[in-house]
Design a protein around this nucleic acid. Structure first.
Lengths: 71, 71
DNA sequence: ATAATATTTAATGTTTATCATTAAATATTT
DNA sequence: AAATATTTAATGATAAACATTAAATATTAT
């Protein structure tokens, strides 16, 4: 599965989710959905804006975790 | 901008785009679109399948390149 | 060069899902 | 307990993935 890790980097930047949402240009509601894995895809425009605001690479926030096949 | 780098890793794995497409479970046409930046978003299910097949992390294929504002 | 293979582009259509918005619930901080 | 932050829920418009077919172009092998 793919997850979006925002907690760490937000803590690093001492930034709140609301602030990031505003700077990124999406609603805090939708950013929360992104953060909590409620979302099935992401637009590159959104990912781009997040990377720009956080000054980071996609790899800093996107993580692939091998699915557990035996469950 | 966000780009998907597949050339390097495909070369590393000595794998053709067609083969990857088949293993990922999307058409080679659409994988080509992904690879050449014709696509505006990506489903996590697709990104997940790519990472799984290539045994890599999103950061290995997704790259954020700062847009040149002055152009 | 030419045949075979691989990749890209184009065009159309279905289906999926982002993201907006509003409202309410829950969690966290002051 | 008040204020602030985050999450959940629900609805809807709009955008776009991805499928498919076909054709064009590029690459590799003979």
């Amino acid at each position: 599965m793919i997850i979006i890790r925002l907690d760490r980097i937000l803590a690093d930047r001492k930034m709140k989710l609301n602030e990031l949402a505003e700077k990124v240009g999406i609603s805090n509601v939708n950013l929360s959905c992104l953060k909590t894995g409620k979302v099935k895809a992401i637009r590159f425009s959104t990912l781009n804006a997040i990377c720009k605001v956080l000054n980071c690479q996609p790899g800093d926030i996107l993580e692939y975790i091998e699915d557990n096949e035996e469950m």
